[in-house]
């Protein structure tokens, strides 16, 4: 079914615009038109369906579900709920405080915060539809593992004293959050509002990602990637992760970039490592988290993510070589 979007791009580029099929601009424009229509179609459809079946979990509900569980349950629960709980990065601070206030350990809270931006069902479904199930499953499993091990590491190092003191003093109120309307019109209304909310929030990242993907696809020759980003260059993975650290995009937004890189022969591990690094660590996110945690813990957090993304890159380059 996704061939429609290739046909549509063919139609626009070759029939209406009558562009030369060999030129760089043609290749870039073709990629851009195909991906804009395909990814936004997928995005709207997937968010609507997810909203309709109400599989999105609010952070308040996640807090209730994780609070008071034994470590054996709370870590797996935190990473899996992190994957299905959408929240905008400006909610990270209240979320962090609310979790600790519920008695959820720092390690579990960090596991949740690491996993959440990296994995979400929308990005995973878009990834599966554009690049296949194998890559999507690999992305999910490694993302969950990075979150889980990161949380366990924070717990093992006993870093609670690096949390700002005022955080421990805040008490959370009880509230009955608005009840959900589960009639058919209510579900449709909720699903449409989720489309507006989520697509309204991430579209600039997705469009930007498609733009970068189109430029790479059209204008950067394959030989460039074969020379600098091939699997036999051990520096390619750490450089890709370092490039991704300051950059921020939504997980869905980096998919077109990864798609273009893979098509140019960049190995899968390197592409996955870049995707995770762009989605998970960013400068704005660190500045926001600085309000609740002190610099040493932020340093450890970034170091952990750097090391684990590099490891993921090497691992997948070796497995899929």
């Amino acid at each position: 079914m996704l061939n429609w979007f290739t046909d549509l791009a063919d139609l626009v580029v070759f029939h209406f615009l009558e562009m030369d099929s060999g030129s760089k601009a043609t290749r870039a424009l073709h990629f851009f038109i195909e991906d804009v229509t395909k990814i936004f179609f997928l995005l709207v459809t997937i968010v609507f369906l997810i909203g309709f079946f109400r599989s999105l979990v609010s952070p308040e509900r996640a807090r209730k579900m994780i609070g008071g569980q034994s470590p054996w349950k709370s870590y797996p629960l935190a990473v899996s709920l992190g994957a299905v709980t959408p929240f905008c990065s400006c909610s990270s601070v209240p979320l962090f405080i609310g979790f600790l206030e519920a008695g959820i350990p720092l390690g579990v809270t960090m596991a949740f915060l690491i996993t959440s931006p990296m994995i979400n069902e929308v990005a995973v479904l878009v990834l599966a539809s554009t690049m296949g199930w194998k890559i999507a499953v690999a992305y999910v499993i490694t993302g969950l593992a990075v979150g889980l091990l990161g949380g366990l590491a924070v717990a093992a190092l006993k870093l609670e004293h690096h949390v700002e003191e005022y955080v421990w003093k805040i008490r959370m109120g009880e509230t009955t959050l608005p009840t959900t309307d589960s009639t058919l019109p209510g579900r449709i209304r909720y699903a449409s509002s989720q489309v507006r909310e989520i697509v309204g929030r991430i579209w600039p990242y997705v469009l930007g990602g498609i733009g970068v993907g189109a430029m790479l696809h059209g204008f950067v020759p394959q030989s460039f990637f074969l020379e600098y980003a091939a699997a036999d260059n051990p520096m390619a993975v750490p450089v890709a992760v370092l490039l991704g650290i300051p950059l921020y995009s939504n997980a869905t937004g980096v998919i077109p970039v990864a798609e273009a890189l893979l098509a140019k022969g960049v190995p899968i591990g390197t592409a996955l490592a870049l995707m995770m690094s762009v989605a998970a660590i960013s400068l704005p996110e660190m500045i926001i988290l600085r309000k609740v945690i002190k610099l040493p813990l932020i340093g450890i957090f970034v170091m952990w993510l750097f090391i684990s993304f590099v490891a993921v890159g090497y691992l997948f380059n070796a497995i899929f070589a």
Partner: peptide, 24 residues
């Protein structure tokens, strides 16, 4: 904010009652 039991912002409170959380 947390005193209202809200973690996902923006949240909206009308006459002391939380009516909405987590989005526009």
């Amino acid at each position: 904010i947390l005193g209202f039991g809200v973690m996902s912002t923006p949240g909206i409170v009308v006459d002391g009652q939380v009516v909405h959380t987590g989005g526009i």
